[in-house]
């Protein structure tokens, strides 16, 4: 069952990802991207990271994908379907990406990862919460400041009138 689910999600994720980078229509790309996010949320569930799966949906689908779709819509006049999708180096880049994949795949399969499968903690969310205010308090605070700054920054950059 796990295998089936894994392959299901993996195929969804990868197929959608390929569509994301190749679809001519950017809005559709963005929609495929959402499918990728869902696929990955599924992967997270398989990995017993339900919290992360929900966060994935919440942030990636709810915020990032929405923002992207927004941006695509706001700049829609430029989406001339006749325009090429890729820049001139696309072939080279495709070759490079394939090569990179082969290399990475060889590496990740060859390295003897220190695998030690244990049970996933039942109280993962509590533990996560404790970590956020415990050892990771500073990153947590920094992340919050970062979000505020990013918000202010986005407003500064995109404000209408000078």
């Amino acid at each position: 069952m796990q295998h089936v689910m894994f392959f299901l999600f993996a195929i969804i994720t990868l197929g959608a990802a390929i569509m994301v980078v190749t679809t001519r229509n950017l809005l559709r790309s963005a929609l495929w991207l959402i499918l990728v996010f869902f696929g990955i949320a599924g992967i997270f569930v398989l990995l017993n990271a339900e919290f992360l799966a929900v966060v994935q949906i919440l942030v990636y689908v709810g915020a990032i994908a929405t923002l992207i779709i927004f941006a695509v819509m706001l700049t829609r006049q430029v989406m001339d379907p006749k325009q090429p999708r890729f820049n001139d180096q696309a072939r080279v880049v495709a070759g490079f990406a394939t090569l990179l994949f082969v290399v990475l795949a060889v590496i990740v399969t060859r390295v003897a990862w220190p695998v030690a499968i244990g049970a996933a903690p039942v109280d993962a969310i509590q533990q996560l919460g404790m970590d956020f205010v415990g050892p990771y308090a500073v990153p947590f605070e920094v992340a919050s400041v970062l979000l505020v700054v990013a918000m202010i920054g986005a407003i500064i950059i995109a404000r209408e009138h000078e």
Binding site: P139, V142, A143, L146, V149, A150, G153, A154, I156, R159
Partner: peptide, 24 residues
């Protein structure tokens, strides 16, 4: 800590992007 390094670097980067694009 890698988490902190990543976060701080991105913090720096994102703020820098804004500063770079400041002159609208």
């Amino acid at each position: 800590n890698l988490v902190m390094i990543y976060l701080a670097m991105e913090f720096l980067s994102i703020t820098s992007y804004v500063l770079t694009g400041y002159l609208r």
